[in-house]
Design a binder for these strands. Structure first.
Length: 268
DNA sequence: GTTGAGCGTT
């Protein structure tokens, strides 16, 4: 009956957290509980898990009720073989709130009524922290890094090939935006800065020239000529940008609708 | 089925 990790921290008023490292990714709190409970009263055991895969990260936090017991467990369980791996037990240096703790004991007990003018973004830090850890981990595992890179490259190639026959604009944009899922950051920036100034020092958009063509030939605008008249205009403005609609060299939008000419029964 | 420096959650 050890539902450790199921609910939030039960009580961390006078508890000492121990950090257990080098444990197997399959080791669970239930496996560590009997080991640590033998040396003292274990209040709670928490094993951080990856949110993406849900697997253990390889370390656990054991909370003791008394410091002496925690110290004993550190000295006794440090270097113990668990699940075929030597675990490392030591006092936690940081608390659940990333606060500095002394000998596993949290120095600051929930600074809730403290001046929060420090303006610390918990959400932003969360993501950053996760990314940092992930990056470090990937960097360490060379095989994993290569594997991922190869996979990414393969996907990129396939993706590029597809883009040749189809439009890759929406896909690319979606991917780029998918990376940024921080609405908080966006809101904060939009609040402080103009929405227009997305990149103040990167993309100044020097193309400020209005429409000299329109001004010179307002007749075109007034007279609704055939849709083809707009084609040259667009091309002229972009310089060398074919119509995204007409994928076929023939310039026939209708052809794009039927990618498989095999289906043509004779009519098309 | 997977890796191995390090510090945490309904």
């Amino acid at each position: 009956m050890s539902h450790f990790g199921r609910s939030g921290p039960p009580d961390i008023s006078d508890t000492y957290s121990l950090l257990v490292l080098n444990i197997t990714f399959r080791t669970t709190a239930d496996d560590l509980f009997p080991l640590f409970d033998k040396y003292g009263k274990v209040v709670d055991i928490f094993i951080p898990k990856d949110r993406r895969t849900g697997e253990s990260r390889g370390f656990a936090f054991v909370r003791y009720k008394y410091a002496d017991e925690a110290q004993k467990a550190v000295e006794r369980l440090d270097g113990r073989m668990v699940d075929g791996r030597e675990i490392t037990v030591q006092f936690a240096k940081y608390g659940p709130n990333a606060e500095r703790i002394h000998k596993g004991r949290i120095i600051e007990s929930m600074p809730r009524t403290r001046h929060r003018s420090r303006s610390r973004s918990p959400r932003r830090r969360y993501r950053d922290d996760y990314r940092d850890r992930d990056y470090r981990r990937r960097s360490r595992s060379r095989s994993y890094d290569r594997y991922e890179r190869d996979r990414y490259r393969g996907r990129d190639r396939d993706y590029r090939r597809r883009s040749r026959s189809r439009s890759a604009s929406p896909d690319y944009k979606s991917r780029g935006r998918g990376r940024y899922d921080d609405d908080d950051d966006r809101r904060s920036r939009s609040r402080s800065r103009s929405v227009d100034s997305r990149s103040p020092a990167h993309s100044p958009s020097p193309r400020r020239s209005p429409s000299p063509r329109r001004s010179m030939s307002p007749e075109r605008s007034a007279s609704p000529r055939s849709p083809r008249g707009e084609s040259p205009d667009n091309r002229s403005r972009d310089g060398r940008s074919p119509s995204p609609r007409s994928v076929s060299p023939r310039g026939r939008p209708d052809a794009s609708r039927s990618p498989s000419p095999r289906n043509s029964n004779g009519d098309e």
